[in-house]
Design a protein around this nucleic acid. Structure first.
Ligand SMILES: [Mn+2]
Ligand SMILES: [Mn+2]
Ligand SMILES: [Zn+2]
Ligand SMILES: [Zn+2]
Lengths: 131, 131
DNA sequence: CTTATTATTGCAACACAGTCGCAATAGTAT
DNA sequence: ATACTATTGCGACTGTGTTGCAATAATAAG
């Protein structure tokens, strides 16, 4: 089977399937570390990052930057393959560390001539469970 | 003169005044590195961070987290000393690196029981000058 | 099934951001 | 001038995320 001219398709490995199902099982966005702790098998840190970056490239996962500067990854739910925008906020609880998607899509008007490529909205505080 | 019971007032030093005026001169948010490069005198990295953190504590400056996970600092303009909220977006140009405040204040509704402590909104892309 | 191709992995090394302890320095009040 | 202590520089440290390289393993082809 042919794929894009210069590259083969993604390969299905133990690491990729486990990371993917971990993200599916979680209802929230996870850091590389949270993922690593959930995995049944041992997977190298670098590999986890590479897998996640691939997932993002392929549009299966979106990346969130916390107010702590760290990356969190969440499965894409209702994503158009075409118009792949994740303009929604996330909430990170400073107590339990959970990072949730807030679902409502936001629209931000930019000054004339500005081109948006990436959206990152995050509110941190204390979640209902921890309050 | 008395200040809060356990701590002396802030002291005016060459570092603090220079960093402050650098932020005033800049129309945009700056990283610790951008600041360091602008300074006339040499100031240690750790000191710059400490000064900036103090400015944030005192509510003179607000902190922005880029989609690159890095911190940027901008002077507070029209800030109430009481209700000190910076619920506006920022735009970071991936080409020239400039980080601008988008001024319009945003309101985000959180699920019941959630308490917001911090807002970070950032859109990255290409600015009008670089487009 | 066997073989060839090459995507994926583990490991080590790296770059960088941001923090912190400690001793030296320098504002500020008296 | 002196005492007090906030601030600084330095070095060391933690943690995140990336990358080069050689070994491994998924997949297609025969
Ligand atoms: Mn999300
Ligand atoms: Mn701002
Ligand atoms: Zn919580
Ligand atoms: Zn630009």
């Amino acid at each position: 089977m042919q794929h894009s001219r210069n590259s083969m398709a993604r390969r299905k490995t133990e690491s990729t399937t486990q990371i993917l199902s971990t993200l599916k099982a979680a209802s929230s966005a996870m850091s590389h570390q949270m993922i690593q702790e959930e995995l049944d098998i041992e997977v190298d840190r670098a590999t986890i990052y590479r897998v996640l970056n691939r997932f993002c490239e392929d549009g299966m996962v979106h990346r969130v930057i916390g107010e702590n500067g760290k990356q969190y990854f969440a499965l894409c739910e209702g994503c158009e393959k075409e118009n792949h925008s994740h303009n929604h906020f996330h909430f990170r609880c400073k107590n339990c560390g959970k990072v949730e998607c807030l679902s409502r899509e936001i629209e931000i008007k930019l000054p004339a001539g500005y081109v948006a490529q990436n959206f990152n909205g995050l509110i941190s505080g204390v979640c209902a469970q921890c309050a």
